[in-house]
């Protein structure tokens, strides 16, 4: 299937990836080729499928409600791009 250029732009916005005009047609062509591949799925007869979560029938383990983490702000923020006063800084958030 062919994907529209405008759709690529929408996807890039949703995924927060800057795409420039030069690469967009190349990206469009490559995505179209991948979508052609995955379009083979539509041929599959899945009418008799029941939804089973996982083959091993495993279920979620639950954790006891006990504090197990100590304050590690210093170590965690040592590798952060920009912090001040214990906060992670980003360009102004406008709601």
């Amino acid at each position: 299937m062919n994907i529209e250029r405008s759709e690529i732009e929408k996807l890039a916005t949703l995924a927060r990836i800057a795409i420039n005009d030069e690469t967009i047609s190349e990206v469009t062509a490559r995505l179209s080729s991948v979508l052609e591949l995955v379009d083979q799925l539509s041929a599959a007869d899945t009418s008799a499928i029941e939804n089973v979560a996982n083959p091993l029938q495993a279920t979620q383990r639950l954790r006891e409600d006990e504090v197990a983490e100590i304050n590690q702000r210093e170590a965690l923020q040592a590798i952060a791009p920009d912090t001040e006063a214990g906060l992670f800084l980003v360009p102004k958030v406008i709601e």
């Binding site: 994907i3 996807l11 949703l14 995924a15 990836i17 990206v27 995505l31 991948v34």
Partner: peptide, 13 residues
């Protein structure tokens, strides 16, 4: 990686 993110975004949209 960007390509796969875009494909994945597409398939879930």
């Amino acid at each position: 990686v960007q390509r796969r993110i875009l494909i994945g975004t597409y398939c879930l949209s």
